[in-house]
């Protein structure tokens, strides 16, 4: 089963939920940090990294001897990554999506693809948790190919917990796609509600069953709660604002380590998620 943890708004507690859920589980789980732009889960889980692999995407390289500057590659590139000027082909690798169109369609066979590193993935262990994260190189724009590589580690039959990036666009879609359940973490403010509504639209479009965690529920208003009730969205957990939790977070200490009562809360939530999934399956 794949459980992803997402949110429209950043800083609502995705990593807190994902890491503490993983640490509360009474069995082996895989943990995948798909927030490759700003991965933070390792700060809390402190895994022993055993393997590092470079991840690249194929980008074009032009053989100027064969090139006739016909301009076909520029014409077909949907991402403006190629410009043909006078007697030169300019390539902008940061814009390339690695679709392979230019090398496939070049009439002179003058383009070959070379690998360009966009980041790394790191694989390790901490207790019964198999840890995998991706780290995008600074200056690289394209995170989805790296997220896809991180997700290749997902093994059948295991429980995989995915820590997704904030937002609602491509990196988020790539991270939560094919999940069996998505936990949306929000906070009880107009910002939290606005971005929760967007995130709900995304998970609905992807047809992923989901529920909501309201973090710091007691320092805002009750509109998130009302929205969830009106739309029959299950509330999986309420986490209060707590100086102790904030302080543990600031030092990279998972809350379940110091506040044992949360282990049970996260385990109960996992059971609730399993029940919700079974219900959904029956409905189908």
């Amino acid at each position: 089963m794949i459980i992803s943890v997402a949110s429209g708004k950043g800083g609502t507690g995705k990593t807190t939920v994902a890491t503490n859920l993983a640490l509360s589980m009474d069995r082996t789980v895989q943990f995948l940090d798909c927030d490759v732009e700003e991965p933070n889960a390792h700060i809390f889980l402190k895994p022993q990294i055993e393997q590092r692999k470079s991840v690249g995407i194929p980008v074009p390289e032009v053989n100027e001897e064969k090139c006739t500057h016909c301009g076909k590659c520029q014409e077909i590139c949907a991402f403006n990554a190629i410009a043909v000027i006078k007697n030169k082909v300019l390539i902008f690798p940061e814009l390339c999506h690695g679709c392979g169109g230019c090398s496939l369609l070049c009439p002179e066979k003058a383009i070959r693809e070379v690998d360009k590193e966009i980041g790394i993935i790191q694989i390790g262990k901490v207790g019964p948790i198999e840890f995998i994260n991706g780290k995008l190189n600074v200056g690289e724009a394209m995170s989805p190919p790296l997220i896809r590589t991180v997700k290749k580690s997902i093994a059948n039959g295991k429980i995989a917990i995915i820590d997704a990036p904030p937002g609602t666009s491509c990196p988020v879609i790539e991270s939560i796609k094919n999940s069996d359940f998505c936990i949306l973490v929000t906070e009880s403010t107009p910002f939290g509600l606005n971005d929760l509504i967007l995130a709900v639209e995304v998970v609905k479009k992807l047809e992923i069953p989901f529920g909501v965690i309201i973090n710091r529920f007691d320092i805002g208003d009750d509109k998130v709660d009302l929205y969830c009730k009106e739309n029959e969205i299950p509330i999986l957990m309420l986490i209060p604002f707590d100086m102790e939790i904030a302080s543990l977070y600031s030092r990279g200490i998972p809350m379940v380590q110091e506040k044992k009562e949360y282990t049970t809360k996260f385990l109960d939530m996992f059971k609730l998620i399993e029940n919700l999934r079974q219900q959904k399956a029956k409905e189908k």
């Binding site: 800083g11 732009e37 700003e38 995008l136 200056g139 690289e140 990036p165 904030p166 937002g167 666009s169």
Partner: peptide, 23 residues
């Protein structure tokens, strides 16, 4: 936006200053 990827790069290129808000 948050992050360091595509929309962030589009937001900062050609600006005169970046203010990084941290905690």
């Amino acid at each position: 936006p948050p992050g360091i990827g595509c929309p962030v790069i589009s937001s900062i290129t050609g600006t005169d200053a970046v203010l990084v808000v941290t905690e």
